[in-house]
Design a protein around this nucleic acid. Structure first.
Length: 328
DNA sequence: AACCGAGACAACCGCTGGTCG
DNA sequence: GCGACCAGCGGTTGTCTCGGT
């Protein structure tokens, strides 16, 4: 059967919005506020679907939107956030005031993904494929409104985001820190990198754990409340029985790879620099009810490619810091 | 000047999760 | 507990613009 369409499509206008329609919509929202998108077009006298109105408002008419080119800082931020969040454009957009998910998504698809792809295809750095589909909730589409968003929709202004956004925030904080630390650090030799590569952080043969990590666990790792990893590991890397490398990486980033199941779900991170000795001092598992032996690691899929530094190339050229895996 | 292809961006579509009756 | 409704998300498609031939 399928569900009924979200709105009667008969007689509804599609395609580009006219200036008049924009004015009507903007005026109506100014008077009545956002929300009730389903009834909005009817009440406002627009021959548009509620969804269309919402999209138009969010992506174009909102007063707080920043128009114009994406700055280098914003671009870098997008790259970083994408490394952490994958194609979660709304979360990424949440960290870029005045930018919409649609805008960022378009920008990524037309600019950054190619850059990242080009960089990767040049054999630069290491690719770590983190299969978010293996994470509960991680690989799934995050449609729907969250509870707090629902609350907001009911009238209250509730700050968006919980675990994943927090994760992004912390990741960025650490990225900034790491960037400062790493920027002067000696670039490890290819040999060192090869050693790092040989440390066992590979994906083949990895068995999926019976249960993946809970979203709370993953978020918890990056949660500012208890983010610090502390480890008694001597080595920089956890082997793949115990989990992904917890070392500090810097390097170029990032590619989103489409799997057979579609574009979302996989985040491939290009990791160039492998600071075998830096590692873990910043991380503290204290307070997290997990251990490095936890099953959660088993469901992460790692795919190391080439560790070689591009000839004459500088690692970190494209993306000087990588933090998600650092934090893991 | 006309055509064509690529790039950029706006909008649509299908699906999802949360809420509510 | 269930289903309908709703808002939101991300992928995809459509349209416009611009540069090259």
């Amino acid at each position: 059967m399928g569900r009924a369409p979200c709105c009667e499509k008969v007689g509804l206008k599609k395609g580009r919005w006219t200036k008049e329609e924009d004015e009507i919509l903007a005026r109506y929202i100014k008077e009545h506020g956002e929300g009730s998108w389903r009834s909005l077009p009817k009440n406002a006298g627009l021959l548009r679907c509620g969804k269309s109105c919402r999209l138009r408002w969010i992506n174009y008419l909102r007063a707080d939107l920043k128009r114009g080119n994406i700055s280098e800082e914003e671009e870098e931020m997008i790259m970083k956030l994408h490394a952490t969040l994958g194609n979660r454009w709304s979360l990424i957009a949440g960290h870029l005031p005045g930018r919409t998910d649609n805008e960022i998504k378009n920008y990524w698809n037309s600019h950054l993904s190619r850059r990242a792809s080009d960089f990767r295809s040049g054999g630069h750095g290491v690719v770590v494929n983190l299969d978010l589909a293996k994470l509960p909730g991680g690989g799934k589409r995050r449609g729907g409104r969250s509870g707090h968003n629902a609350a907001a929709a009911k009238g209250g202004k509730v700050k968006k985001g919980k675990g994943k956004e927090k994760a992004a925030e912390v990741a960025l904080q650490h990225a900034a820190k790491k960037e400062q630390e790493d920027i002067n650090a000696a670039t490890p030799s290819s040999q060192e990198q090869a050693q790092a590569s040989a440390s066992g952080v590979t994906s083949d043969g990895l068995e999926d754990g019976p249960l993946g990590p809970s979203e709370e666990m993953v978020s918890g790792l990056l949660d500012p409340v208890c983010p610090k990893l502390e480890t008694d590991l001597d080595g920089a890397c956890m082997d793949h029985d115990s989990g992904p490398c917890m070392d500090s990486y810097t390097g170029p980033c990032i590619k989103s790879e489409s799997g057979p199941s579609g574009p979302c779900g996989d985040v491939a991170q290009e990791v160039g620099d492998h600071h075998a000795d830096k590692a873990l001092e910043d991380w503290d598992l204290t307070g997290l009810e997990i251990s490095v032996d936890d099953d959660m690691w088993d469901s992460l899929v790692w795919d190391y490619n080439d560790m070689a530094v591009p000839e004459g190339g500088k690692q970190g050229e494209l993306m000087p810091d990588l933090f998600f895996l650092d934090n893991m």
